[in-house]
């Protein structure tokens, strides 16, 4: 098993005059809107539990107001969680005092913001160097480091400009560079690309994937765009009304949405590109008529369709160790495309 980097257990955040009291008294089945009506408290995050593994991109996806921003801010305690346990690198974040917390924020984790949060009075290079400056690193050293990161995100030549002189996409590159400059283990991103127009957003997503290949940071990436979550996330948590309703890999979620809320998101997904042999296969039965060459688990439907179109037989699926783990046939592929769970015939 991979290392657990961030571990959240039963995290709650309630806004209002007496959050502690409410946290104790609410019943799990009471709806958020009801609590707001009866007590005037906003339950923004409700009993959230998940683990983030080292080096993965963990996407948190949900509609506006579902508590994503609040959750991600609880991780670094920019917002104090009302209840629950947050452990990062084996250390209890909730129990940290001010100094330990500052240390955590300075060295272990940094953040990218939806509205950039750049310092308009500082040049690009000084924005990027901010985290290092706060750590107390000397001017020459931090500028050199900032320059490297600047080039990494493709902003050569813009060092001496001010943020407002840059386009939105470039500004967010500065935001990303500022977060990367401190070489954090964990990167928290709160809808970093939401304010950008679609083409630029796609560029930035590709760039992030590219960067991640080399950097291997642990990332918690917030988005309200399901396709973005599919594209970037190793795993995705889907939130509704402060609760996590499903956690899984992109294809687990597309293939097996737990309820209508999740299903609604998956409807517009190009399933042929997301679903793979591994998620549509079924166990092998006796007397199976195996045909053709075996395919790997991560073969997408897009690639399976030509193989199954012409034959009625079953195509074997093998895992990485070349063990036979199941078969796919035309029926399985068609049913997966039709978004219907197959009842066992």
């Amino acid at each position: 098993m991979r290392n657990v980097k961030i571990s959240c257990r039963h995290v709650c955040k309630i806004f209002g005059p007496t959050p502690e009291h409410i946290a104790e008294t609410i019943k799990p089945e009471t709806a958020v809107s009801e609590i707001l009506e009866n007590t005037g408290h906003v339950v923004a995050v409700r009993d959230v539990t998940f683990d983030v593994y080292e080096g993965e991109i963990f996407c948190v996806m949900g509609l506006s107001g579902s508590g994503k921003s609040t959750l991600v801010r609880c991780l670094s305690r920019l917002i104090e969680p009302t209840r629950g346990e947050i452990v990062i690198n084996g250390e209890d974040v909730v129990a940290m005092n001010k100094e330990q917390l500052r240390d955590l924020r300075r060295h272990k984790m940094s953040m990218v913001f939806q509205r950039f949060g750049l310092f308009s009075h500082r040049r690009v290079i000084d924005n990027i160097a901010y985290g290092l400056e706060v750590q107390g690193i000397g001017r020459a050293e931090r500028l050199q480091k900032a320059q490297e990161i600047l080039e990494l995100v493709g902003l050569q030549g813009w060092a001496q400009h001010y943020p407002h002189e840059l386009s939105g996409g470039m500004q967010q590159r500065v935001g990303l560079a500022r977060a990367l400059a401190v070489d954090p283990e964990i990167l928290l991103c709160d809808e970093p690309f939401s304010a950008l127009d679609p083409l630029i957003r796609r560029d930035m997503q590709n760039e992030l994937i590219h960067l991640q290949k080399n950097l291997q940071k642990t990332m918690v990436f917030i988005t309200h765009d399901f396709l973005e979550a599919l594209k970037l996330g190793d795993r995705i948590a889907i939130m509704k009304d402060g609760e996590v309703v499903q956690i899984g890999t992109p294809e687990e979620i597309v293939a097996h949405p737990v309820n209508d809320y999740v299903y609604e998101f998956t409807k517009d997904v190009p399933r042929v590109k997301v679903l793979t042999a591994g998620s549509v296969m079924r166990p092998i039965r006796q007397k199976e008529d195996l045909i053709g060459k075996a395919v790997a688990m991560d073969t997408t439907l897009e690639q399976l369709i030509p193989l199954t179109a012409d034959s009625d037989g079953a195509i074997p699926v093998m895992d990485a160790e070349q063990n036979l783990v199941g078969i796919v046939n035309r029926r399985r592929v068609m049913m997966a495309l039709a978004t219907v769970e197959e009842e066992e015939a």
């Binding site: 953040m111 913001f113 950039f116 750049l118 310092f119 500022r178």
Partner: peptide, 20 residues
Amino acid sequence: DVLEAARAFGSTPRQILTKV
């Protein structure tokens, strides 16, 4: 949002005051 960014990088209150 600017203040939050400053806080997220672990600035002390004094640093937030003088630098931001």
